[in-house]
């Protein structure tokens, strides 16, 4: 089917660039992007456990990399992705229960998850540096 010429000429559905961006569309795309990003986060967290199991020297070395400027930037992005994916995941669970589909409610909850993602990451970093 894929190699057949007549099949390849069939019209395609409009792709991303033709749509006006609206918040419910953005939150859906961010949810998937954040989930993919958290794949790297899971690897970093597993690496942290390995460093912990390998003793104080490797643990301090690993933490040294994580707390370097680039390390902190990556950690902040992953923390924001985790907070956002968590908040929007709860929004999806509410949708699974059949509630919150009204356009105004869905738009408001969409903005709320974006705010929750940024705010959650700031709170986690504040706690990490205060304690």
């Amino acid at each position: 089917m894929a190699g057949s010429h007549s099949q390849d000429k069939r019209p395609l559905s409009p792709h991303l660039q033709v749509w006006r961006w609206h918040v419910t569309m953005a939150t859906s795309i961010f949810h998937r992007a954040a989930g993919v990003g958290l794949y790297i986060g899971a690897a970093i967290l597993t690496g942290w456990l390995v460093a912990l199991a390998s003793g104080p020297l490797s643990y301090d070395g690993y933490m040294g990399v994580l707390t370097s400027p680039l390390g902190l930037l990556v950690l902040f992005a992953i923390t924001a992705a985790a907070c956002y994916h968590l908040a929007n995941g709860i929004r999806h669970l509410v949708w699974d229960a059949g509630k919150g589909f009204e356009p105004k409610v869905a738009t408001a909850s969409g903005w709320a998850t974006i705010v929750a993602g940024g705010l959650g990451a700031i709170i986690v970093f504040a706690l990490a540096f205060l304690f």
Binding site: L45, T46, A53
Partner: peptide, 10 residues
């Protein structure tokens, strides 16, 4: 597996 073994070791 790596995560669980590391946790067990610690």
């Amino acid at each position: 597996l790596v995560a669980v073994l590391s946790i067990a070791k610690v």
